[in-house]
Nucleic acid binder design. Sequence first.
DNA 1: GGTTGTCTATTGAACGTTCATTCGGTAGTG
DNA 2: CACTACCGAATGAACGTTCAATAGACAACC
Lengths: 190, 190
Amino acid sequence: MEIIAEKKKAILESTLKLIKENGFHGTPMSMVAKRAGVAAGTIYHYFDSKDTLIMELFAYTQGQVQEAVHKDLREGMDLKENFFLRWISRCQFYIQHPDVLFFIEQFVSSPYYPRCSPDQNERSQNDIKEFINLGRQHGILRDVDFKLMAIMIHSSIMTAARVHIDGKVQLGEKEFHQLAQMIWDSIRKL
Amino acid sequence: MEIIAEKKKAILESTLKLIKENGFHGTPMSMVAKRAGVAAGTIYHYFDSKDTLIMELFAYTQGQVQEAVHKDLREGMDLKENFFLRWISRCQFYIQHPDVLFFIEQFVSSPYYPRCSPDQNERSQNDIKEFINLGRQHGILRDVDFKLMAIMIHSSIMTAARVHIDGKVQLGEKEFHQLAQMIWDSIRKL
DNA sequence: GGTTGTCTATTGAACGTTCATTCGGTAGTG
DNA sequence: CACTACCGAATGAACGTTCAATAGACAACC
């Protein structure tokens, strides 16, 4: 893992926050600079352009998510436990980092997303896939296309987190389990 | 239903297409004008600003979706059939109108979305809610928060359509049913 | 039936602003 | 002296929006 210069990190973080507040447009470089406490020119010392700043920001947030989920993982869980844990901790990560959620949502539905390398966006769901593979081998999961299942799971997580953040529904311990159970029932053989 | 002037419609349609191709930013008004075959100034005859153009475009697409789904509905179906039909026809609508899907995705994860009136975005899932209510009354569905369930269903539809359009997975008759079955199993009592 | 006035639809050049990016310069380090 | 990190005013292009001008439709009036 590359060590990120302090100012570079500050730029990434403030971009993240500003994009949550003002959206993709509506965040001029000058504002990023001010919020990060650097000069406008400094940004261009670290990033070629606004586009690459945003592309790198995506990689940066993907790293954060990955890290957070893996931290919670323990050995010797059965598949269902494993699924619940992954689902819930991913969802909680997004809830605790709304700016990441907002950014990713915006990013994936923007013309930027198709531009990132295929393995970049595959890695983003690597841990989900790893899990699906396991479930398949044990004959526990339905025979549904791999990618399809992975994406359906991931989108359920994002959606749940989003609803919670918007305050439309309060998600507590109970609701998390209800939701994880719903998704679990949708992917396992009945 | 308001009758929309021809040029107004052309403006809406070309905005839709351009946003799919170039994203929210990346679609200057001048380009919208050219594609719609009108002068730049004409847009401002129908819309106060770019913002209101986009807000109205959202309402416009919502109307289209609503209409398409209701067309397929018949009387005397049981709940499960009803669900399958709604799920599949909504999904197919998005697949047949990728520009609508792209636009809605971008719109809801942008700072525009929170600005539309609450009943505007509630209406957008009205038919899903109508269905959930029915299922609740019959005791077929799980006891999960209303809004939560509606949004989970809706997001599954959008995600499935998106995956298909991106060509990551080919969805045929069989896959549609598999998917609808998955979601059905996730919302019904087991 | 012709004349006048009003209203709407439309045009596209011009305006003013915003914004990404550049660049010449300063400071610190080795 | 060379090299990197950093600054921030200056630049120039892009873009949303305005506006004076034109044309057509329709009605009122003589």
